[in-house]
Design a protein around this nucleic acid. Structure first.
Lengths: 111, 111
DNA sequence: GTTCTCCCATCGTTTGTCGATGGGAGAAGA
DNA sequence: TCTTCTCCCATCGACAAACGATGGGAGAAC
């Protein structure tokens, strides 16, 4: 009955994670996924079918911009860069995230 | 365009919050919502249209059971109680949650 | 020259949250 | 008494996000 599948991701945090992954330097989609995975020690597993729609959202909102280029391996790749608005948004979402986490912890640690 | 609406809740955490709210003592739906709200200092605002479907889920999974009774104010109310399986599930979800939060923080604090 | 890894992307499904809505029933105030 | 308020139940339809499956192009490696 209770086939319990540990989640690959906390829903609602993907945009934040992507924005943060791009904060240091521009990257292509595949690179973002890998970075999130390695930095989180294999905990956060972002599938491509979650990643690309998310990138579209961010593009639409103007938080990232994209340009075609060549990856380190000389392959055709689309590089995403954080815009100024994106940088601001990153700060906002980070703040909101911590705010919620704090609230959740208050519940979890209540007697 | 970018109407940013701060979330009332971190999606995917509601079940955990409810289980925890019931851990101390059985409660009716309205009471759960209030408790979450007050304990979180008004940050977590659980609407009834999120709460009741969630309670149905938990019932179906056998993590809570429900019985009709009377509230403190002498009103007809449905009291939800954590089952043994529910208690176990609470521990599991809590663990998974912290695991994910740790991973997210690794990303957020990466250079 | 076949296979592998890199890198793109979409479609359809499922799940979760939320706004709106509706109602019953005791309590409180007019 | 009558109305309004608070408590407490619940559902429906809309919407958004995440995911599994799928498909493909193009260098690199074997």
């Amino acid at each position: 009955m209770g086939e319990h599948v540990p989640p690959d991701l906390l829903p609602g945090t993907l945009d934040l994670l992507i924005l943060k992954a791009l904060a240091a330097n521009p990257q292509h989609g595949y690179g973002i996924a890998q970075r999130l995975r390695t930095v989180s020690d294999d905990v956060l597993q972002v599938g491509e079918s979650s990643l690309y729609p998310a990138l579209q959202r961010l593009l639409l909102k103007g938080w990232v911009k994209a340009e075609w280029g060549a990856s380190e391996n000389n392959r055709r790749a689309r590089f995403y860069t954080l815009t100024a608005a994106g940088r601001k948004q990153l700060a906002v979402e980070r703040q909101e995230f911590e705010h919620l986490i704090l609230a959740i912890h208050k519940v979890l640690n209540a007697t």
